Computed example of a mutant assay.
Amino acid sequence: MANLSVRRGEGSNVQRTREWDPFQQMQELMNWDPFEQLASHPWFAGRQGQAPFVPAFEVKETKDAYVFKADLPGVDEKDIEVTLTGDRLSVSGKRESEKREEGERFYAYERSFGAFSRAFTLPEGVNGDNVQAQLKNGVLTLTLPKRPEVQPKRIQVASSAVEPKDSIKS
Rank of each mutant, 00 (worst) to 15 (best):
R8V: 07
A51G: 07
F23H: 09
F116P: 00
P52S: 05
G74P: 09
K146T: 02
E10L: 13
P73W: 14
E10I: 06
L38E: 03
F120V: 13
F116N: 01
D76K: 13
P148F: 00
P123R: 07
E149T: 03
G11M: 00
V54R: 13
E98Y: 14
V14M: 02
G125P: 06
G128L: 12
G93T: 05
G46I: 02
S92C: 00
V150L: 00
N137D: 13
R7E: 05
T141F: 02
L4T: 13
G9P: 05
T85Y: 08
T121M: 07
A161N: 14
V14Y: 03
T141A: 05
T143R: 09
T17Q: 11
G103Q: 04
P34H: 06
V91M: 03
D87K: 10
V59P: 00
T121I: 05
N3Q: 15
D79C: 02
A119D: 04
T17K: 10
R111T: 11
A158S: 11
E149S: 03
S92M: 07
A39Q: 10
T143W: 04
Y107H: 15
D79S: 04
R118E: 15
L38S: 01
S97H: 09
Q37G: 03
I155T: 05
S159L: 06
Q151E: 14
D21Y: 08
Q15E: 05
V14A: 04
Q151R: 15
W20H: 11
G9R: 01
W32Y: 15
F35N: 05
F44K: 06
F68K: 10
K94Q: 09
Q50R: 15
L122Q: 13
S12F: 03
E98T: 08
S97V: 10
R16Y: 10
V157C: 01
P73Q: 11
N137I: 08
E101V: 10
L122R: 03
F44N: 10
K63T: 07
A51N: 13
A65F: 08
E101I: 11
P145H: 01
V91Y: 05
L72E: 01
L144D: 00
E96F: 02
W32L: 14
W43M: 11
E58L: 10
Q15I: 15
D33N: 11
S167V: 14
S12Y: 12
G49W: 01
V150P: 04
E124R: 09
Y107T: 15
R100Q: 07
G114L: 04
E96V: 07
A56W: 06
N31T: 05
V131R: 12
G49E: 08
P148R: 06
R154K: 12
N137K: 13
G46M: 10
Q37S: 04
Q15P: 01
E163I: 13
D129M: 13
K63I: 08
G138S: 04
Q134M: 11
N13M: 06
P164Y: 01
M30T: 14
E19W: 08
S160N: 10
A39S: 11
F57R: 12
A133C: 07
S92L: 04
L89F: 04
F68M: 09
W43F: 15
S5W: 09
R111V: 06
L144R: 02
G103T: 02
G138R: 06
F44M: 08
K99R: 09
V131F: 08
K136T: 07
G9A: 02
F113T: 09
M26K: 10
R147C: 05
E19R: 14
V126P: 00
F120W: 06
Q24R: 12
R47M: 08
R47K: 09
M1V: 08
E101L: 05
R88T: 11
